[in-house]
Design a protein around this nucleic acid. Structure first.
Lengths: 206, 206
DNA sequence: GTTAGCATGTAAGGAGTTACATGATTTT
DNA sequence: AAAATCATGTAACTCCTTACATGCTAAC
């Protein structure tokens, strides 16, 4: 069930879980979470928001006036209980399809909503699948080394190196998770739309 | 015009330029070129092939019998002159849109079809754009230091490191291209490439 | 005699983008 | 007075995947 890609869905639920938001502001906050160069388009965002409302995961909290432009209507969305549950489900899911390449970074960004056990399980599952892919790539490289030209081989080798680094990074994350290295169990409450508040600052680990 | 994504188009033209092929075999050879985990689906491949024929870039060379299964019909595709020209155009193009993230690896794989000057120009253009993106990511990280939780920050930092490595790799490629390092038709020495040491399969991970 | 591989295709649908459309407000 | 930013939305299109449909051949 629910084998959709859902990277955007998880990102939206995750960001809104930190505080109610309207679409325009949400879009900007999705940039670091989705790891995109370009922000997601409104043509994708607004219809998705309404879909999430119709599925009962979000509510249109209210239509407020902007503090900046008092006559501008903004539709503010907030998480429902079902939305909270759905977010937890999405974060805890260790996917096996290739759609999880898109999902994984978003899942990490939402890791504050998962238990330490879940986090460890997700990280280990991801590492395992990347190791399998590494094996497959090495295999391809060995098989193709007479058929492929120097540029293609260099490209493959570079991809392999990058994947190895990814696996090593996951190893570090796992070690750190085990030793309780990621202090804050919950992400900070961002309050409302005000950019500045009295929220606790996070200390980077090292 | 040429404003489509065209990663698949370039890959198809590139692989077929190395020798006429039918779809089923082509699909397998596209795996290393496109850098995919899963092979491209037939539902994408076959319609694209016919589109390329209708655009005059490919011809259905003949319908041969399979050597393996003599009663199996195979449609063998070959490049036209227009197809060759289109391939050269695609490889030489230094794109500026985000679609070029998909295009670039394919372009590298087809680098043998570009002049040394073109190759240098493409590599330098790519490096420059990634450096711009790096600046932007650093900016985002500084701005988000207080708003984002530890996991999101770690993810961002990891992405930044990966991008830095990518830029460094491009630097190596540029140096090597300048000193004629890719000139010899022989594939590079694969001495460092060893079959993977056996990983314990179901061992509880560290 | 069933599973796997060879070989080509279509239909439906998912998940996004671009371009368009509208209008208010602030800054230059 | 023009440009930039705020804010929401729709329509058309792109490019892909999944699932289906067909039928042959090899190997276990």
């Amino acid at each position: 069930m629910a084998r959709r890609a859902a990277a955007l869905e998880m990102a939206i639920l995750g960001v809104i879980s930190q505080g109610p938001l309207h679409g325009y502001e949400l879009r900007k906050r999705l940039v670091p979470v989705l790891g995109l160069i370009t922000a997601i388009s409104y043509g994708a965002l607004y219809p998705t928001l309404r879909t999430l409302v119709s599925r009962g995961l979000l509510v249109e909290k209210d239509v407020t006036q902007s503090e900046v432009y008092p006559k501008r209507n903004r539709i503010v969305y907030d998480l429902t209980d079902a939305g909270q549950a759905r977010l937890a489900e999405l974060v805890a899911d260790v996917g096996t399809s290739s759609a999880d390449d898109d999902m994984f970074p978003v899942r990490i960004a939402m890791f504050g909503y998962a238990s330490p056990e879940t986090r460890l399980r997700v990280l280990q599952g991801r590492r395992r699948r990347l190791e399998d892919r590494l094996d497959q790539m090495r295999d391809n490289l060995v098989k193709g080394r007479e058929r492929l030209d120097a540029y293609t081989l260099e490209l493959q080798q570079h991809g392999l190196d990058a994947l190895e680094r990814e696996v090593a990074w996951l190893g570090d994350m796992i070690d750190r998770e085990r030793s309780g290295g990621f202090a804050p169990p919950q992400p900070p409450d961002l309050g409302t739309l005000k950019p500045r508040s009295t929220r606790p600052k996070l200390e980077p680990e090292n």
